[in-house]
Design a binder for these strands. Structure first.
Length: 679
DNA sequence: GCCTGGACA
């Protein structure tokens, strides 16, 4: 990802001058003679853009096979490589991402996301179209790239001619090689014959690292002070501060603004700017614009600036040493989002951001002793701290039934796998032998949305609300990852008013449906209308596309999707109101996420049995966790009794539920498939 | 009284 340089075409170097050019022949020889090549190539080495071209020139596509490169920014890289080869995009060089397949019969080099390549393995288990598969930035250890490596290791045994290239940071290269080599009973001798590690130099400038001599308690205060110290004594060049989240960013900016009047009138100006995923696009673009004359930019960013987004002109990095990490607790089923000390690998990556255009400096707001002795070498990979239900589904769909024997790069804790299996069993997606049920389990896997939501959607024909559930599912899938349905705004009252405009008494799901229907009807699919209502145009457009994809999937399953029913609120002849039918359909998927409101307005989870004997209605006798409706939920300071919810997140010691809707107590027993003993 | 970051026929 670091190679993408998305917003700074001026930095592109003629390809012949890139460091990798020197290694061309050696690299091709290594790949020719080794099934697996681990490529250590830092930012700016040209590995992602050049290596696929070398391979193509060397004849790796001559027998009709093609080269795959998995990359998070497939679009950008493909565009650049197509330009370099002087061909138009989708011809020799193409890309494939979720909603766009820009490839053709002529395509020889295909950039795609690792998730998509995994999807292809469902249809073509040996990925036989490809002669070389390059897994780029594998050290980032995303769920899907970890699974992909496991699958590739299996495939390699059946396809000796396949070549695998794994690009990695220095720290993890040995681990990747050991993984591919360590076959039967950890045979270290095999390492040499399976693969090689090749290292190419980057194009980065040196970065001076400064540590604190004493640990500091107020990193925010200290970061702001450091900004002004730099500004007073260092030559021109922009500053990048890594902060854990949005509120820290906003506070930091306020503090900087407060201090600005203390600068002398003759001094250069300071321009603090925020950068995080939830910002509106236009606001995000400010950080890429050159600062005005005699002004120094101070970019206060989340981890988005560590690898995903590159900003030109940064010469000073301030690193307080924290990141917000999502960790799933398999015992409680709760995700926690906590500021956590970063790893040394992460610290190195952050420092490197100061040396992209000229020599730079990095100020670490921790001691060298902390760096050496207390910070972990690498971050715990996703696979060891996530809800694994989606992963289990995917592996089962690929025919890997014995998860205990699957070759994981880093095996997940058993509790995580057990929890995932229990949930999928409760939903009816797995049978007593932990095999995918037919048709439900295979369909849940194929939909590729989170399992509870998939179950709710697949149940919707029984309740006569397929159309509505399609829209709700699309809205839920489209939001998240920083891009919410609504924008948060400085003007809180206006924001609240905008939310209330679409509010539906029954809860967040019907409210989302309401927003979706308003967006697509009355010809309102436009940015202006969204702006007026504080809605995120990008998220809603995405929802429309996701809905189409889901609808096509349902049609493949033979589920009839009729034309959208009339407005919400219309009674179906002789049946229940549409709202009730939707809520019942939701309950049939989200029953494991049920809660009851207490007199004080907080919620308690309703304990399910999940194979361990039935529990009562209020959490099985134990002290149930106190949960709060998330402030973004409609149920925040509203009355309800029984509810289902989408997710639970713990932040700052408080547990929040999001996407909350009212249900009836009896439905949990009726639709919960025996999960609850309540009637 | 609020969500780190990616992504899926």
């Amino acid at each position: 990802m670091a190679d993408s340089d998305t917003f700074i075409p001026a930095l592109h170097t003629p390809s012949a001058l890139l460091p990798i050019a020197r290694h061309r022949d050696a690299l091709l020889y290594t790949i020719e003679t080794n099934p697996v090549t681990i490529l250590i190539g830092p930012t700016g080495s040209g590995k992602t853009t050049q290596l696929p071209q070398y391979l193509e020139q060397a004849g790796w596509c001559s027998d009709g096979k093609i080269i795959a490169v998995t990359q998070a920014t497939a679009t950008t890289i493909a565009t650049r490589v197509a330009a370099e080869t002087g061909t138009s995009l989708g011809q020799k060089v193409g890309y494939s991402i979720r909603f766009e397949d820009v490839t053709s019969a002529a395509t020889k080099i295909k950039f795609l996301t690792d998730g998509l390549l995994l999807r292809e393995a469902l249809v073509d288990p040996l990925l036989s179209r490809y002669s070389v598969i390059m897994v780029d930035e594998a050290h980032e250890r995303s769920l899907s790239s970890d699974v992909l490596l496991g699958i590739l290791k299996k495939i390699r045994k059946k396809r000796p001619k396949l070549r695998i290239v794994v690009s990695s940071a220095t720290l993890q290269a040995e681990e990747f090689l050991r993984f591919f080599a360590g076959d039967d009973a950890g045979d270290d001798q095999a390492t040499g014959s399976i693969g090689r590690i090749v290292s190419i130099e980057g194009r980065a400038f040196p970065v001076d690292i400064h540590y604190l001599s004493e640990p500091c308690e107020e990193y925010l205060e200290r970061a702001v002070q450091t900004v002004f110290d730099i500004h007073a004594s260092e030559p021109e060049g922009d500053i990048l501060i890594f902060l854990p989240g949005r509120d820290d960013i906003e506070t930091a900016i306020e503090k900087i603004v407060d201090h600005i009047p203390s600068l002398s009138a003759k001094a250069d100006k300071l321009l603090p700017l925020p950068l995080y995923a939830g910002l509106m696009t236009e606001q995000q673009l400010y950080v890429f614009e050159p600062a005005p004359e005699a002004t120094r930019k101070v970019i206060c960013a989340t981890n988005i600036a560590e690898a995903s987004v590159t900003i030109a002109g940064i010469t000073h990095v301030i690193d307080p040493g924290y990141v917000k990490l999502r960790v799933y607790n398999p015992t409680t089923g709760i995700d926690t989002l906590t500021p956590t000390p970063i790893s040394r690998a992460s610290a190195t990556q952050r420092a490197g951001r100061a040396g992209r255009t000229k020599p730079g400096k990095c100020y670490r707001l921790y001691t060298e002793a902390a760096y050496t002795h207390t910070m972990p070498e690498t971050t715990v990979p996703d696979i060891q701290r996530s809800d694994l239900a989606p992963l289990v589904l995917q592996l089962k769909a690929l025919g890997i039934d014995n998860l205990a024997r699957f070759d994981f790069l880093s095996p997940p804790p058993a509790e995580l796998l057990v929890r995932a299996l229990e949930l999928l069993y409760a939903l009816g997606a797995l049978d007593d032998y932990a095999k995918l049920t037919k048709p439900l389990g295979t369909r849940v896997a194929e939909l590729g949305i989170e399992p509870m939501l998939a179950k709710a959607l697949l149940s919707s024909p029984d309740f006569g609300c397929v159309n509505e559930m399609l829209s709700i599912a699309a809205m839920l899938q489209a939001s998240g990852q920083g891009s919410g349905v609504w924008f948060s705004h400085d003007n809180k009252t206006a924001e609240e008013k905008a939310r209330r405009f679409f509010a539906v008494e029954e809860g967040d799901h019907l409210t989302l449906l309401n927003v979706y229907q308003a967006f697509v009807t009355k010809g309102k699919q436009e940015a202006k209308w969204c702006q007026k209502h504080y809605l995120n145009f990008k998220t809603l457009s995405r929802a429309v596309r996701i809905r189409n994809q889901l609808r096509r999937a349902l049609e493949r399953f033979g589920i009839v999707v009729t034309d959208p029913a009339a407005d919400v609120g219309v009674l179906k002849a002789g049946g229940l109101p549409i709202q009730t039918r939707i809520l019942r359909s939701l309950t049939s998927g989200f029953f494991p996420h049920a809660a009851r409101m207490q007199a004080d307005g907080t919620f308690r989870a309703v304990g399910g049995q999940s194979g361990k004997g039935s529990r009562g209605e209020d959490g099985g006798g134990g002290a149930a966790m106190v949960m709060h409706a998330h402030p973004s939920s409609l149920m925040f300071n509203r009355k309800a009794e029984w509810v289902v919810f989408g997710e639970v997140v713990e932040m700052r010691g408080k547990v929040y539920i999001r996407e909350v809707s009212r249900v009836e107590r009896g439905w949990l027993g009726e639709l919960g498939g025996g999960y609850y003993s309540i009637r």
